[in-house]
Amino acid sequence: MFLPASSVGRKLVMAATGQLMTVFIILHVAGNSTIFFGNLNAYAAGLHSLWVLLWAVRIVMLPAVILHIIYALQLTVENGKARPVDYMKKENRTSTFAGRNMIWTGAVIGTFLVYHLLQYTFQVTNPALSAYRNLDEAGRPDVFLMVARTLQQPLIAAVYLLGVTALLLHLSHGIQSSFQTWGLNGERSFPFIRKGGSAAATILWLAYAAIPVTIFTGLLLR
């Protein structure tokens, strides 16, 4: 396809994969929130019984993440070269800290993602807590135990908070940006989308951050 050969094409790929991942993390947090209603294990078991769907999502998400990262690197490198001599004094008026540091928040998210997968998907970081080894009363893998025990550790909770905060920053710019990139806005909706993007990112952050925070502070018990 001719898309990635051009500047706009690359951005379209970034925005599409970004939006795809955003949809994923919305579904993901919706699923995760079963933890507050005491049926995380049921949700996890249900998910694994729908393995076709699970794998379909994984097969879509993996290339999405890879494409997103590849073009992120390419765009950032190109953008960096576009001003070889920097200003002595520069005032930014509309760009945000989040917007200017997408690559860094992205890098944090990426690193976090690897850790997160190793921890809860491949379950190799804390083998003793692996859900496959510990079954709950109903005989299902005890995902809750795994999550709760790990997030009770200050360092791990901090890592999760850091990860979701990076996500907050990333999306506070990324969501509105992706609408603009695809031209999915008009004169009137434009300001609304700009605010709406940050609002959505904040809601997602609250939802995600709630898990480590409530577990670590002991608010959430089985």
């Binding site: 050969a5 190109e78 953008n79 070269k81 001003r83 509309t94 917007g99 997408m102 710019h173």
Partner: peptide, 17 residues
């Protein structure tokens, strides 16, 4: 847009500066 890149300009990150 192709020419824009060729000339050494960066890409748009929607900062609106």
């Amino acid at each position: 847009t192709e020419e824009m890149l060729k000339q050494g300009f960066g890409n748009c990150s929607n900062h609106y500066e």
